[in-house]
Amino acid sequence: MTEYKLVVVGAGGVGKSALTIQLIQNHFVDEYDPTIEDSYRKQVVIDGETCLLDILDTAGQEEYSAMRDQYMRTGEGFLCVFAINNTKSFEDIHHYREQIKRVKDSEDVPMVLVGNKCDLPSRTVDTKQAQDLARSYGIPFIETSAKTRQGVDDAFYTLVREIRKHKEKMSKDGKKKKKKSKTKCVIM
């Protein structure tokens, strides 16, 4: 069974824990209790493949930012979460993405942009803004509501699919490099 290491990042209060708990335990946590770091595991079937999701729910508070490099190193894919009623959390996505790329030393890291709290009427981040940002990053965008469960499975499952595509691409690139290195030079 394939294991996928997913990391949920975003500013404090955007609903990272609520999304994760909704996926794992099928219930909505409405009281806000700032996370330092929590880890969850769940076995699911995605596109006919049974897999184990190892999900790291991270601290959004700035005082825990020193811990970010460590979990970013171990993560295979990242859910970059903002709240649709919090423009600052949307603007912060850029910083999370840049930090992930720096730590992973790669421009090509599996990510999904997630606009959470889409059940709320007080939207300050337009869907088109988020779609445009995701398009500019070359990553999928999904709106979710941890409260109603809308888009929750889709967000995590899409990230797994992005990781699969990335692994497939990397193995193809690896095979191309191996083929090239088999060419021999004969000096007579």
Rank of each mutant, 00 (worst) to 15 (best):
D69K: 04
K101R: 11
L113M: 08
V114I: 10
C118I: 11
T124R: 09
V125M: 11
C80N: 02
V81T: 08
V114R: 00
V81C: 11
C80S: 03
K88R: 08
L113P: 01
E63I: 04
R97V: 15
M111C: 06
Q99L: 13
M67D: 02
S106A: 11
R102I: 06
D126H: 08
K101L: 08
K104T: 11
D69C: 02
P110V: 03
A66T: 11
V81R: 00
L120S: 12
C118D: 09
D119P: 03
G115C: 10
P110T: 04
E98M: 03
C118Y: 08
G75D: 02
K117T: 14
V114W: 00
Q70F: 03
G77E: 00
T124W: 09
V114E: 00
Y71Q: 15
V125A: 11
C118F: 08
D105T: 05
M72V: 13
V81H: 05
D119R: 02
M72C: 13
S65E: 13
A66H: 07
G115I: 11
L79F: 06
N86P: 01
D105Q: 08
D69W: 00
N86L: 02
L120R: 08
F82N: 03
G77T: 02
C118T: 07
L79R: 00
T124Q: 11
R102L: 06
D69N: 04
P110H: 05
A83Y: 01
Y71T: 14
F82Q: 02
R68L: 12
R97Q: 11
A66L: 12
V103L: 08
K117V: 15
R123M: 12
F78G: 00
V109H: 04
T124Y: 10
I84E: 15
V112M: 05
E63D: 12
R73S: 09
V112T: 02
N86I: 03
E98A: 05
L120G: 14
D119K: 02
R123C: 13
P110C: 04
A66C: 13
L79W: 01
V112C: 03
C80K: 00
K117D: 07
R123F: 08
D126S: 09
D126F: 08
V125T: 11
P110E: 01
E98S: 06
V112I: 10
E63A: 03
D69T: 04
T124V: 10
I84W: 12
K117Y: 15
G75S: 07
R97W: 15
N86M: 02
V109T: 05
I84H: 14
M111I: 09
Y71W: 15
D69Y: 02
R123K: 11
V103F: 05
E98R: 05
V81D: 01
E107G: 10
S65M: 10
P121H: 12
G115V: 11
R68A: 15
G115N: 04
C80H: 04
C80P: 00
D126C: 09
S122I: 08
A83S: 13
V114N: 00
